[in-house]
Design a protein around this nucleic acid. Structure first.
Lengths: 241, 241
DNA sequence: AAATGCGTTTGATATAGGTCAAAAACCATG
DNA sequence: CATGGTTTTTGACCTATATCAAACGCATTT
């Protein structure tokens, strides 16, 4: 097992990371924060299309996205794939691997990205000493469960238009939280990937986007989205019985 | 805040619980187990239809089901409901509440049930001292995430027959793990609840079950299910492209 | 600049599952 | 044991989305 200080990759400081408000170190201060720094390290950059990990690989660490964009997907033997999430800077991935000491999904970079590696054994050890960190780790895992329930609701009971509206609003909100425009952004994923995530075929995603555009809710051109009428888009989600 | 010893409800011993293999105490031994006993207590029994907790209520404890059957559901403002799971003895619920210190779903007894209450503050405290318990708690949360990903795949990419086959096989496997027949069991939930869980209408659930019966895969009569051809049922899940 | 290839859009058609409706079976209650 | 309410089944019909197919746009390579 290698420790952070052995790690050939660049060491970084959570204490000076501009994602502090979003990532693990929330609420940690002073020496606690430095102890987290001590076990976190930046892995080599990932190019678009590269795998951060694959289903079945042994579990060693959680990963925090520093820059870039990832998707996670579950593959079924018969070739069926399900995108389980799209992750952006400040978000933590790899939690699913704790249960079996092996990754249960793939994580793929959707654009060139940098990630922080947080060895899980050491994180557990530290969180035994720092109740704040412990609680925060639990919250992150719990948040993932709540998020998944939301997607289950979406997949189980929403129509195509509602799913897409919910998806766009969710992206909007997350971009906004990172200081980017909530109304104008670039999609990093294909129609096919959006479809897989939302339980729709890519043609339906495309048609529904065109449909939104025809009704003046937004402008789409390839991966460029501009939301024109946020309120009406919002009223879409859940208003239709 | 009340501790387990103040609690008017019956105190019990995890150390002698016959769900040990399924519930939290897995791998805990000796004094560690007794310390967990000390914070766990049995709440009053719940009658069919009673709520263990409701969405929005403050979070205090996790709950382990001792006997009986629960469903958890998320309610959307517009009345839409999504059943997010069916829980049986030895399973832990309430994990979703950690993220916001409030429950984010309802838990409803589907039959008369008994549950153990595990105050979360105390569980965290204990898990700081017992790495085995800490790791196990993390595994339980992670397992929930993996389970949810499985449901996302089911909802996102399976046809009605596959969903239902997967559902029945999942129940079968869980009954089996508890020493009950894997092929013959009683459904505690309505067609409507199954449908909500699987993203189908109750009529579709009913029709699909009849369809399975017509093809000799199983016998259903109301809530009584007998699986006749486990292998063929299994081959259903995922075989159809 | 031509060629190749992936991603996207759009149209025509098919179908799985939803909706509506009615009857039957079951269950709880007085 | 009659009654009223819920759950389940089954049928007929409808619609949202999938499927199949073709054309187009954009990016990358030759």
């Amino acid at each position: 097992m290698q420790t952070a200080s052995d790690n050939p990759c660049l060491r970084i400081a959570c204490s000076s990371c501009n994602l502090r408000e979003l990532c693990l170190p929330v609420d940690l201060q002073g020496s606690a924060l430095h102890r987290l720094d001590a076990l976190t390290s930046i892995k080599r950059p990932f190019r678009r299309g590269e795998y951060l990990y694959r289903s079945g690989e042994p579990f060693r660490a959680l990963y925090a996205i520093r820059t870039g964009f990832f998707k996670t997907q579950v593959l079924h033997e018969n070739g069926r794939e399900q995108v389980t999430g799209f992750q952006m800077p400040g978000e933590i991935i790899g939690l699913d691997a704790i249960s079996s000491d092996a990754h249960s999904c793939d994580a793929v970079a959707l654009e060139d990205s940098e990630i922080c590696e947080i060895p899980f054994d050491q994180l557990e050890e530290l969180s035994r000493e720092l109740p704040t960190l412990q609680r925060y780790l639990h919250k992150i895992m719990s948040r993932e469960i709540v998020r998944d329930h939301g997607i289950m609701m979406l997949l189980g009971s929403m129509r195509a238009e509602e799913r897409l509206a919910a998806f766009l609003l969710n992206l909007s909100q997350r971009f906004s939280a990172r200081g980017y425009s909530p109304s104008s952004f670039h999609l990093r994923m294909t129609r096919q990937e959006i479809g897989s995530y939302l339980g729709l075929k890519l043609e339906t995603v495309s048609r529904t986007l065109s449909h939104f555009q025809d009704h003046g809710l937004l402008n789409v051109r390839l991966r460029e989205v501009e939301i024109m009428d946020m309120l009406r888009l919002r009223s879409f989600v859940g208003t239709t019985a």
